[in-house]
Nucleic acid binder design. Structure first.
Lengths: 214, 214
DNA sequence: TAGATTGTTAATCGATTAACAATC
DNA sequence: TAGATTGTTAATCGATTAACAATC
């Protein structure tokens, strides 16, 4: 890994795309790929593919291209797919349960180990083998388990509180679905899924398309 | 609106953030805000706030700042919040139902008018007042209703098929939750929510944090 | 070897930031 | 009027693209 200079967010956002497409190629039995092939699928230039990889080392062979399997492995390692991330879901409502049922996360090494809520109605229910526990037992649970990621699917007004609690208990990353932005300590990673922002951007694009037709 | 030159995606992504923060200010009864105030909350520079608005016109008053209410109105209009977008949900599984239950979309003018699936078990069920219909009746339904947006929450392998169907029936925008990327005609807008990509980016950040601690 | 394609440096482009005149 | 803050142009920075030598 080229040390020191930090890799830009734009590059990181593309890595999973490479990873996904490489897994498709592998499934198709294709063992070799060029930066040109990759670039077409991800809709960027071949230059950028090579520039992106260059941030982390050299994974190809001049005059030949890249071996699919080892390249996928390398990118996977960069992304941390070589280790399992244990997750808890804070907020076992519709969205929380939908995420718990999303089998493909587990295939990628993201394992849900607990779900928490305050609603007495859903506590004790079992979703995909995971029992929904009361939020009050979170501290005790995290004492017994090594949890890496907290998924925040509680209502907006409780999001910060849930995140703060998880952080104080030593969480490493937060995957936030509540439409609030909050600050976290530098050593806690955070990714936001802002559904309504995405929807508003879509609305903008639709409006723009309508305007350009007229 | 400054015509001709297309507004960059980065700007569009920030508009909903301004909009959201303005709605918070309004709720707090604050009527006036400066680019400096706004910039602190969105974590950008005051320059960028003004530059962003400059793409669309001038909404402020020199020496004074911006009136919260009218500014929010303007940004809302740019984003198309002045009209209602009718949505259908294709795929009434956990995620589809979670989105249907997400009340805040409707407050922003995104109205779910139908849900579709192929699973006989869920067809006929009613979620938040919306009956789940069979996918086969989609064409007939869209003939009777004016639908703007299709939300794709079917499994990955059926995503393209569902999108193609909706496009052929005249959909204006696609909100895609399936982890596949597909091409759509230029006059169809699309926004992707790539959950596993976000999760992988989170994994990267966590790994990076761990590395920098050592 | 000849052809191909990477790794890597240099050039370009676009987005962000700075500066400041306009003006409330 | 004096002070403040926008609107807008110019400077800077970073990311993307191009180019090409290295080399398989």
């Amino acid at each position: 890994m080229r040390d020191e200079k930090k890799v830009s967010g734009a590059v990181i956002k593309r890595l999973p795309k490479y990873y996904r497409y490489l897994s498709v190629l592998r499934q198709m039995g294709i063992t070799r790929v060029s930066s040109n092939d990759l670039s077409k699928k991800i809709e960027i230039t071949p230059s950028q593919v090579r520039q992106d990889f260059f941030n982390f080392g050299s994974f190809g062979l001049q005059g030949y291209g890249y071996e699919v399997e080892p390249l996928m492995q390398e990118i996977g390692n960069i992304l941390g797919m070589d280790q399992i991330n244990q997750m808890i879901i804070l907020g076992a409502g519709n969205l929380g349960q939908a995420l718990a049922n999303h089998a493909s996360f587990e295939k990628r090494g993201f394992k849900i180990v607990g779900m928490f809520d305050v609603n007495p109605y859903c506590i004790g229910q079992v979703v995909r083998g995971i029992e929904i526990m009361h939020f009050d037992s979170l501290a005790e649970f995290m004492g017994r388990h090594s949890v890496d990621i907290a998924v925040i699917t509680v209502p907006r007004e409780h999001a910060r509180e849930a995140a703060d609690k998880a952080i104080s208990l030593g969480i490493k990353g937060i995957w936030n679905f509540a439409s609030v932005e909050f600050e976290v300590p530098k050593d806690v990673a955070i990714e936001h899924i802002h559904l309504s922002e995405s929807l508003m951007a879509l609305s903008y694009k639709i409006k723009e398309n309508r305007a350009s037709i007229r």
